[in-house]
Each structure stands twice: as structure tokens, then as C-alpha cells.
Design a binder for these strands. Structure first.
Lengths: 262, 262
DNA sequence: GCACCCGAGTTGTATAGCCAACCTCGGTGC
DNA sequence: GCACCGAGGTTGGCTATACAACTCGGGTGC
């Protein structure tokens, strides 16, 4: 947008997310995606945007910081911001949840629980889930499909209080995060580690690939808003079905390279 | 820190990076890494930190936003921040540059240019590097080692003005980004796509693996501070040598899942 | 003993203003 | 034609303030 002459552009953009700066950010995202400034084009100055949206410069800067973190625009002292790309940005739920990701692509996601077991936590799991020495966990092994095609095997390890909720979900439920959310279990932060793994017997059986076939592996540890560990999962994807993308920049980044564990 | 009673803790922490909030952030990072608040412990309130460091609450919030983006602390309305992890955070250069990453781990990085060619850009490269229809590029194929062991094959495609600088670097130079930086070529933003690829003849020869062996692939597009494309690279890692880690949260994230290209 | 409510503490959002650092571009001088 | 300089425009950084929204624990009332 940023074309009209009135200052109520934000109100006109609809009551999106509550915060003002989020609505401004969403509007700018749309404008960029629509190619309103072109690729490599320049954004209006902060002051101009502030005047247009009828908000303070601080609010505009908050909105622009979000766009910058997503790799949509550059940002350097002395020059107007430059459009880097028009990449559509996915919401957090599309990241943590295979289901909402698939749906946002127009694909038909599916899932089927293969096995649930309750057992003592391994040392690794105790550390990740911050459990005591005699802590127990619930492991859920689940095959995930895209339009009927098996695409990923998910091994999620939950602390008991979450696992017991998960165990009550029907085995062929498409989504697990949605029913959990309804019961007040909210995923807020996640750490991901991406590398490569060889298919074991379960993977081969559920994905229909050979034993020891190479798979793209994503290990994930999720916490709720209070920082309490909710889940510790290992997902293995069939090659050629998904890729992970990350943006980072000089001014703060979330991506790191790591030496693989032995 | 946050233990003394004086307000000049920042000055005492040494003249690190110029900006105040960066120094505060660095100091808090250290304190967290030292386990000063424990894992799952609570940080002091913003006001307390502001008083301690002798800065305004706004500056403290800037510092804390950086920690939060790196997944070190949570952040929700109504409660003090909670320490999520003590993950060491790498600088941007350790991400874009294999060399500084390896050095920060105490490993001995190496590199050897295998081949340099100048050729017309493919359609994909023209789009990524924003080149005209008859644009040309310089391709550099390079093997990278860790303590002598071949670990990664790097295929970097540069626009001519960068490629000509790269071509002047000795074939066995350890780092390419450092000499480039000295000549004013600064990497500021990068988009990464991570998936899996099969080794081709070059990979097999340089890495000593079988043809079609599975490799972890990272495709990268880097731009300079003005948003001008600098590089468009495809790196292939031997399995078990590196993993990529990412943090994301409800409040803005850089990671996305993508459907693999056909 | 239990549910409820209220209030203190804390972070989120928004505003306003100031100065420094920096980039760009046009004009000047040679 | 070329190098240099400077003015204006723009973002980065920092401060101060105010209020809203939320968490959590303790006290009250039943």
C-alpha cells in the first residue's frame, strides 16, 4: 500500500493481529509481495511511513525490524531500506506443525500413529526435557503423509503430562498440535538441528524405502511460553520432499553451523 | 554479571562492540553461559538491569531482544524472562564463512580451488544474482578440509566483478571471505536452503566418497549491505561432519519449511 | 480446605525527541 | 574530465514517559 493520502491506512487494513506494529508489518509485507516497490527497490523513509500510517517512528521501526529479521528488506544507516526478496513468510505454527505447513501449501496432510510406549527417559531426554533421574517419557512414533504419500516419520518424546494428552488423540488424527493447543499446551519456542540420517527398520517400513537409505533429519526441542520443555522430537523426511530455509544477517541471526555429534 | 552495586558495569566490561546495547547483550550472554541464573532460572527485571548497567530500559530491551532471537531466553508479558539454554551463539561471519567457523572450534580449516570457469549465467543464476539476459558469471569449485580431512565441496557462483577478485586469490588460500572483505566486499545477508543431494563425479573425487553417495546440501545466496547479490553457492557436506541448528519462536522467526523443488 | 479476587510486579506497546553516523548526490574547484 | 567537499536526507542509538495486558502469589470469604 502506502499510496493513499489518509492516515488511517492501518485501520483500513482490517483488525488483523492486535498490535499496531504487527498490522503495519503485515501491510508492508503485502505491499512488498505485490511488488509495489520492485525487487531491489527502495522503501519510503521511516518518517514518510510514520506519517502515512499515522503512527510514531518507533512503531514503524518495530514493524521494519520484523521484516528485516525475515529477510525481506535490508537496513543500513544513511540509506533508505532496500527490498531483498518477496519471500512469503510462514507463521510459527507452519513451522512447528507439519499439518498447518502442508495445508498452507494446499496439500492434504495425514498422520497415523504407529506405536506409543512409556519408558524411562534416556540421559539425553532427561537433559532436553529437564527431567529428574528417574523421569519417564512417552514416545510416539508416527508416519506423516502428503496427499496419501508417506513423507516423514516422526519420533516425538513427551514428558508424561503432555504424553498422556497425546495418547488420548485418535491414532489417525491429522494434527496433534491442534488438540494440544485446545487443552492449553502452547508451543512457543523451538530449537532445530538439521542433518542426515540412515533409515532404520521403522523408517523403511513406514516410508517404503530401503534400510539405511539416506533421510533428511530434523531434531527439535520445543518449549512452552514459560520455558518448560514440551517435546523433543526427531523427524526423518524422504529426500526430495522438503527443504529447510533460513535467513540470517549481520545484525543478529538464529542459524548456526555445528559440528556433528560423534 | 549483574552482581556488583555500581552502575558502570558496561564500561567495566571493556570497550567491546560500539553500541551500548550490544555490550549489555554480550555481558548478559556471558553471565548466562556462566550459569549465573541457572537453566530455567529467571533473569532480573528490565528495570533492575537498567539500573545496574546505568542505561535506559529501552536499551536493555534491545539487548534482551537479541538474546531472545538467539533462543537464550523466553519473554512473555507479566513474568520475568526465563533462561532457555546456554547455547553459545556464533557470529554471522562464523556462519557465512566456513573458515571462521572452523577456527572458532579450534579445528584447522583448509581449502583448495579445483576449478574456475567463466560462463554465461543460467536462468536460475540470473534471477538469484539479478543479472541481465546475457549476464556472465564465474564459477569456483573448491574442496574444503577440516584438519586435512575433506569435508565439503563448495560451488560458488559470482557476478563478474566479485568473481574477478576471487580468481586472484591463491588456489590454496584458507579463506576467501577475508581477502574479499579487505577489498570492500562485505557479506551482510544470506538465505540458506538445506536439503539432501547425491554426490556427482566432482563430489566423489574431491571428498573420496562413492558416486551418488548422500550429502547434506546447503544452497546459499548472499548479498552485501546495499542488497546487491554477491554470491550464489551450493555446498555439499560429508554426512556426520556438520549439522545446522536454528532457533525460532512465536515472536518472529527466520526458519521455514519448503516443498522441495522438482 | 477451597475457590475467588485483588494488587503488586513485570513485560508489551506506543509516543516524542535528540543526536550521531552514514550515504548520496550535486556543485565546486582545478 | 576528474577529484573533492559539503549539505541534506536517512537510519542507528539512546532516553524518558505513560499506559495496557498479563502473571502470580497472598489474602479473603465461604
Amino acid at each position: 500500500m502506502v499510496t493513499g493520502s489518509e492516515a488511517d491506512a492501518v485501520a483500513g487494513a482490517g483488525a488483523g493481529a492486535g498490535a499496531l506494529y504487527r498490522r503495519v508489518a503485515a501491510d508492508l509485507r503485502e505491499a512488498i509481495a505485490a511488488g509495489e516497490y520492485g525487487s531491489g527497490g527502495r522503501l519510503p523513509a521511516e518518517q514518510a511511513l510514520a506519517a502515512h500510517y499515522g503512527v510514531s517512528r518507533g512503531t514503524i521501526r518495530q514493524a521494519l525490524a520484523a521484516l528485516r529479521a525475515n529477510g525481506l528488506v535490508t537496513s543500513r544507516r544513511g540509506t533508505r531500506r532496500v527490498v531483498l526478496g518477496t519471500t512469503r513468510v510462514q507463521s510459527f505454527s507452519e513451522l512447528v506443525s507439519f499439518t498447518s505447513w502442508a495445508r498452507s501449501l494446499g496439500e492434504e496432510p495425514g498422520g497415523r500413529v504407529d506405536r506409543i510406549e512409556r519408558r524411562p527417559a534416556t540421559a539425553y531426554e532427561r537433559e532436553q526435557l529437564r527431567l529428574p533421574a528417574d523421569g519417564e517419557v512417552i514416545l510416539v512414533l508416527r508416519a506423516r503423509t502428503l496427499s496419501g504419500q508417506p513423507v516423514m516419520v516422526e519420533r516425538s518424546v513427551y514428558p508424561l503430562w503432555v504424553g498422556e494428552l497425546v495418547a488420548r488423540i485418535p491414532a489417525d488424527a491429522v494434527s496433534h498440535t491442534e488438540p494440544l493447543q485446545e487443552q492449553g499446551v502452547v508451543f512457543a519456542d523451538a530449537d532445530h538441528t538439521i542433518d542426515l540420517a540412515a533409515a532404520d527398520a521403522d523408517d523403511a517400513r513406514l516410508l517404503g524405502c530401503d534400510l539405511a537409505a539416506p533421510l533428511l533429519r530434523e531434531r527439535r526441542r520445543s518449549t512452552d511460553p514459560s520455558g518448560a520443555p514440551l517435546e523433543c522430537s526427531e523427524d526423518r523426511y524422504m529426500p526430495g520432499t522438503v527443504a529447510f530455509t533460513v535467513h540470517n544477517s549481520l545484525a543478529g541471526s538464529a542459524l548456526t553451523r555445528r559440528q556433528a555429534a560423534p
